[in-house]
Design a protein around this nucleic acid. Structure first.
Lengths: 216, 216
DNA sequence: ACCAAAATGTGAAAAATGTATCATTTTTGT
DNA sequence: ACAAAAATGATACATTTTTCACATTTTGGT
């Protein structure tokens, strides 16, 4: 056991969202010096049940033991973060800059190598030591450099075009912050992050709660 | 029909995430001058089936008709964005600044009134015309002003404390960007946005795909 | 080393979610 | 104005996801 992870195809989105949380909490517990991690403790921190943690691990092929190092290592393998990932950011606006200066994921082997913008004023400048290039050179750059993930922080209108260029450039994944629903294909994986949608979901839950408060 | 929305309690998370997307696309179609919206067209744009769109609308109580204005208005009611929402941002770092300058949600009636930080250097300064206050005055501010939503962009360590203050201050919702899993209670709604997790989910999907490519 | 207590792996039941169906209503074309 | 085509609302069905149950294994104390 613990070997044939990913044996089942197309693991559910819900599970794919829980895995990073497991990883995050295992890292925290490791940093806290915990000698062992139980499904119950993990569940409590994440806010679900121990049964679900075990079922998730089982679905993913099972893990040798529950020592934090083993778990972290196993989850790293699942999440594909045993090797470095190289990224470029498209769009040097506020969001792009925030992501560049957001160093949380460097620890997990994600590195941003370049930023692209269509504003000529930026040419030759840097953000946090990362060069800003003109977006007209993106194709060329992708052909010459290994880029695993493209981060889109452009306005909605050009997102699709960047996706096309990414596919042509052999990029494996797109982390999309533009407010359009880009779709994963067999050529490329897409993760859409819609901040406005997320705020509206919060608003919906607040509204739903108020509705019931006033109702009974 | 179209009246008793939210009749069923605890609508599913999946649905709660789709509603903002429906709203977004209806707004786009309205802007495009479309005279009518069909469940099929909406489905195509969002990437699901027309049956699901109809089912979702049915679950939410049904809508009078499919004219874009009617739909937009109906969805606005569900999402609770018929009145203005006032927000404060905690943390004046890169992420905080990005959110403040991110004006997308102003159109939907969300306004940021103040920013709080614990760095005394910021005192008296402004970001995009919004005053930066010291976080020590947060309690006082929440007592004196109507704040619907608190946006947390602090490090993980203080997030829980901000949540407590928010509850005491009568805030209805927390939009949390700190890498901790804050939980909704009957006092307050929480929407966690974990950027690192989202990137790891993307990495997982890429890895899963590569695994299958190499396997057969 | 033994027993008791706790935790895990796994298959099956239960619950939740999504899809298909179809009668009824609305729209479109002539 | 009428018939044909298309879309909707609501129910029934199928699938997916979560929870439960329990035999087996591991841990911890005496």
């Amino acid at each position: 056991m613990g070997n044939n992870a990913l044996d089942k195809k197309n693991l559910s989105d819900a599970l794919a969202r829980r895995l990073p949380a497991y990883y995050r909490h295992v890292c925290i517990m490791l940093a806290e010096g915990k000698q062992t991690v139980t499904s119950g403790e993990l569940a409590k921190r994440i806010g679900n049940t121990s049964a679900q943690v075990r079922q998730d691990f089982f679905t993913c092929g099972g893990v040798e033991n529950y020592h934090p190092d083993t778990l972290k290592n196993w989850l790293s393998g699942l999440l594909g973060i045993k090797e470095e990932h190289h990224m470029v950011v498209i769009g040097a606006g506020n969001l792009g800059r925030a992501i560049i200066s957001f160093k949380d994921f460097n620890n997990d082997g994600f590195f941003i190598d370049a930023v692209f913008d269509n504003n000529l004023m930026f040419d030759g400048m840097q953000i946090c030591g990362i060069p800003i290039l003109n977006v007209s050179s993106l194709d060329e750059y992708l052909a010459a450099n290994k880029v695993d993930i493209v981060v889109i922080t452009t306005p909605a209108g050009v997102a699709e075009e960047i996706l096309e260029k990414s596919i042509k450039g052999g990029v494996k994944g797109v982390w999309n912050f533009a407010p359009v629903d880009l779709r994963s294909t067999d050529k490329i994986e897409v993760q859409n992050v819609h901040l406005s949608d997320s705020l509206l979901t919060l608003s919906f839950r607040i509204n739903e709660k108020e509705f019931w408060k006033n109702e009974r």
